[in-house]
Amino acid sequence: MTEIMIKPHHFMDIIKLYGSGVEVFVPDEGMGHDFYKVANEIIKNHQIQLQLTIEADDICHPCRMYQNQMCIDKVYKPNYEYKHDYNQMLDKRLIEKLNLCIESNYSADELCRLMLEHHDCIFQVWHEEDDIIIQKRHDLFVLGAQKFSE
């Protein structure tokens, strides 16, 4: 892979899981998505170029829940029925809070450092979540980003 198309929240999820101690990602055979493939590539190649999107990314395309150009997986959040809409909202918030440009490429290292610099935005982006869950997301992301940036 020379470039990865990725949603900003997927990148944060990868770094958060890395912070939780996941060193090697494994396939989710039930869903069939490429989270593991993209995550492993990012973890091993900090200079890989990332093209940001709010639409389906390289993780989503092979997923069983990706149909008719949207994620049909259900989400149980007020005002949202499908992950497609909820995730787009998260990604739009991240793009706005972090001043990201979806027309630009970022190296994984560059995006990680930028997100680490503004890690407190996690509390505003995921504000629909329970405070304990947001705090855990924040803390694991920071741990993962510091580890990734070493």
Rank of each mutant, 00 (worst) to 15 (best):
E128A: 11
L17A: 12
M1K: 12
L114F: 05
K83V: 11
V125Q: 06
C112P: 02
I6W: 01
H84K: 07
H127E: 14
I6R: 04
Y80Q: 06
E81I: 15
H33K: 10
I54A: 03
H84L: 09
K83Y: 11
G144E: 00
F25N: 01
W126Q: 09
D130L: 00
E129C: 02
Y106G: 10
A56M: 06
M1W: 12
K74R: 11
E81P: 13
I4S: 01
R64G: 14
I43Q: 08
E129P: 04
V26N: 12
D91C: 07
D120I: 13
S104A: 10
Q135S: 15
H46A: 15
K74V: 11
S104T: 11
A145T: 01
Q49W: 10
D57W: 06
N105A: 10
F25K: 02
L98E: 08
I133F: 00
F11K: 08
E128Q: 13
Y66D: 00
T53N: 02
M31E: 15
P27G: 01
I95T: 07
E29H: 08
M89S: 13
E29K: 12
C71W: 00
H84Q: 13
D13N: 13
K74P: 11
L111F: 08
E117D: 14
S149P: 01
K44F: 12
Y82N: 10
K44D: 14
I43M: 08
F35V: 07
G21Q: 08
I54H: 07
V22T: 07
N45V: 07
M1A: 15
P62G: 03
E55M: 00
L94C: 01
D58V: 07
Y80I: 04
I15Y: 01
D57K: 04
V26C: 09
G21Y: 06
A108T: 04
C101F: 15
L50A: 07
D85H: 05
P8E: 07
T53R: 04
I102A: 03
D85S: 06
P78D: 05
E81R: 15
E129L: 04
M31C: 14
D130R: 01
Q67T: 09
Q124R: 15
D91G: 05
L98P: 08
H84S: 10
I43P: 05
M5G: 15
F35R: 07
H84E: 14
N99D: 15
I54C: 08
K147S: 10
F141T: 03
M12N: 02
D91T: 04
H61F: 15
I48T: 14
F35D: 04
K37Y: 11
C60A: 00
Q69A: 12
Q146G: 09
I42G: 07
L140S: 13
I134S: 00
I54F: 05
Q146E: 13
I6F: 08
M12F: 04
S149R: 02
G21I: 03
H46Q: 14
N68T: 07
Y86V: 02
M5K: 15
V142Y: 03
